[in-house]
Amino acid sequence: MIATKTRPSLDDLRRKSVEARKLIVEAIHHAGAGHLGGPLSATDILTALYFDQMNVDPGNPDWAGRDRFILSKGHSSIALYTVLAMRGYFPIEELHTFDAAHSRLQGHPDMHALPGLEMSTGSLGQGLSPGAGMALGAKVRGETFHTWVMVGDGEIQEGQIWEAAFMAARYRLDNLTAILDYNGLPQFGWPQAGGFTRETPIDDPGAKFRAFGWHVIECDGHDQASIREALDAAQAFKGEPTCVVAHTVKGKGVSFMEGDFNWHAKVPSDEQLVDALAELDAQLAELGNGEAA
């Protein structure tokens, strides 16, 4: 599908990502709850998926031939909600209902609450299996849609991820891509000799997926050129499922949140919101409005 339509420019995607980050930070500030570090590390990949890679129709969200996306790291829901709203699944103003009573924007994605959500997630490590089920079902039916699952590097500590990895390789589900948001920072950390480390204990996750029979591609999860190259290659690869190891930074885009585990689930103060939005506006100004591009 990506060959038959005009693709957005990389600068368009970069602008979308900064706009998404502004909405994410505002929504969390407004809700007074939620996660920030993970959503900001996932933002660039989500805009690439929904504005460039995926064959979806927000006006007909249940269309059978659509590509599927599952956010296995469900606690980053606000990033997915934001990109879905920007893509036209529901009004952007609704982002301000995140986590509120009666909202369709539940703390963790509820597949029946909001159009565009393909699976309920939240208890970690569970999203890759339904993605494998969708990919297997597509093979059985001869459907050509692609299934994407984003997993966090923290949640691949869960054993079920490796159950799914084993099975997807056995069935040669090359219509399935796992994107690993490899930001390196779990919520708390890990004890080690000589002291405590905040860094994830998952060393070289690509090697682990490769050992399970997956094709592995590494990319810079904040560089749209690198993301496009990796996701294009993932869709084109035949014979094995692909894992895209996207190297990311937790809290990406707001200098005082970047690489600080404290922003895993912290709400910015009014002053911090102003500072964050100023930084993001400066990034937008640097990118220009795109008319010259």
Binding site: Q126, G127, G131, A132, Q160, A164, F166
Partner: peptide, 15 residues
């Protein structure tokens, strides 16, 4: 791998 089996079933059920 029962946990994965349940998840695969859920994915197939959506189709």
């Amino acid at each position: 791998a029962e946990q994965n089996m349940v998840g695969v079933a859920a994915g197939m059920a959506t189709l």
